[in-house]
Write a protein that binds this DNA or RNA. Structure first.
Lengths: 233, 233
DNA sequence: TCTCTGCATTGACCTAGGTCAAGCAAGCAA
DNA sequence: TTGCTTGCTTGACCTAGGTCAATGCAGAGA
């Protein structure tokens, strides 16, 4: 991690709280690491040993029951922060949904550095508060929304977050994008089965609200209507 | 809020990060306020104008759809922190489930104070991280658990949190307690209807796992079995 | 005492979404 | 070309939990 200046997420990740000399000090503690699709960075229940910034790619945070049901409890995009600073075991696993690149730190080294840099902690606090708000919106989805509302919400959310985190400088959202996950993972995120996900996507396609050129691609043809479905309006 | 020394949550709320003189300064910014059952402290979507510590009582954080479905996205107990510091509108409403007492601050005053006191922010960060973990566990419940697993989980959770936050000095959990909410609110928290909540409670009663002396009271007779149901073991 | 009011429970029925079981298309190896 | 694999879709059926409609029951008031 020699060259933070060239880092594509330099100005959006928590690093943006730091001055150049502080950044240089932090960079000595971490290193870049590739994570290939499907590879698990942190196991659910393990002691929290590392934290990281996402540089490229998309990863999932997930929880499982003993009998194998899985729930994805978070999805992280470039510039997002991963991990549980300040002690504790990780209550969820972290697995790459696409090939990814992260900037990784041992938790203890990061904790120590964070304690000395209030601005960094402030940034981290803001991010955590945002993440909590997002988790709570998702609780509404899981507890009260119908299958079609869930699918519509997911498509809007991915379009927005790929737009905001992607390299595209201005787009607030994307109307064509690649899903960073397969149908099973969409189900695990939405609290649905793979079959229901598939049926709802077909329904949206038949209503000409979206197009599905191939398994992974989505084109939003009528964003207004999709938003209406998502918000149950 | 003249006398923080006498405050029952002094050592558990975020105030515990402060030295006596700092605490005195903070106390000048806030005041105690009673909130009676059913009263709303913050409306969903309103600009975030206040934050608070809970001294007594229990409050809910909730989100609604346009057509009136409600999801409770958080429940706060004594010593917990309420509100969305550092800008933004509140994405959820805050309403008292029982008569409550809070120690309230304007958000701007609190933000200013927090910026000058890294230890306070650190404490707040830890709390927010814990809250996020709890929200994510609840996402698993809402997305993947059955009705009976949900009810069992809720009873365990309330027993634990009343035990930890209550005045009882040692009890890690309570085997007899008052529910701080009615059946409708249990449903809104679990993503179920009032009827399903009622039926599942009756089932647990008939299995002699719990007793229900009156509408609001619960006695856990067989905690082991209840935990097994909660974790889907 | 009776009645009113607000929850909670219970029962009968219904449906959204789960389950199970085929198909089917794209990629890939031989 | 065939056959195999992996992921997706589709159809037929089932069930957990929702909906609708009584009924019950405790506390408040008169």
């Amino acid at each position: 991690m020699s060259d933070c200046d060239a880092c594509v997420v330099r100005n959006r990740a928590i690093c943006s709280a730091l001055m150049p000399d502080e950044l240089a000090a932090l960079s000595k503690l971490g290193r870049k690491q590739m994570v290939s699709r499907g590879q698990t960075l942190v196991w659910e229940g393990d002691e929290s040993l590392v934290v990281a910034n996402v540089i490229q790619g998309v990863l999932k945070l997930s929880v499982s029951t003993q009998d194998g049901r899985e729930q994805i409890v978070g999805v992280v995009f470039p510039s997002d922060f991963i991990g549980r600073p300040f002690g504790k075991e990780s209550p969820y696993g972290v697995t790459a949904l696409t090939d990814a690149e992260v900037c990784i730190f041992t938790r203890t080294a990061f904790d120590g550095f964070a304690k000395e840099h209030p601005d960094l902690q402030h940034k981290l606090l803001q991010r955590t508060l945002d993440e909590l708000d997002r988790a709570r919106q998702w609780m509404m989805l899981l507890g009260r929304k119908t299958a079609s509302e869930r699918i519509a919400t997911l498509l809007i959310e991915i379009s927005d977050r790929l737009g905001a985190s992607g390299c595209s400088p201005i787009a607030p959202f994307l109307e064509k994008f690649e899903l960073p996950m397969d149908r099973q993972q969409m189900g695990d995120l939405l609290g649905l089965t793979i079959e229901t996900v598939s049926r709802q996507l077909t329904k949206l396609k038949e209503a000409e609200i979206i197009e599905l050129p191939d398994r992974r691609s989505v084109i939003i043809k009528d964003r207004r209507r999709l938003e209406n479905i998502a918000t149950a309006a």
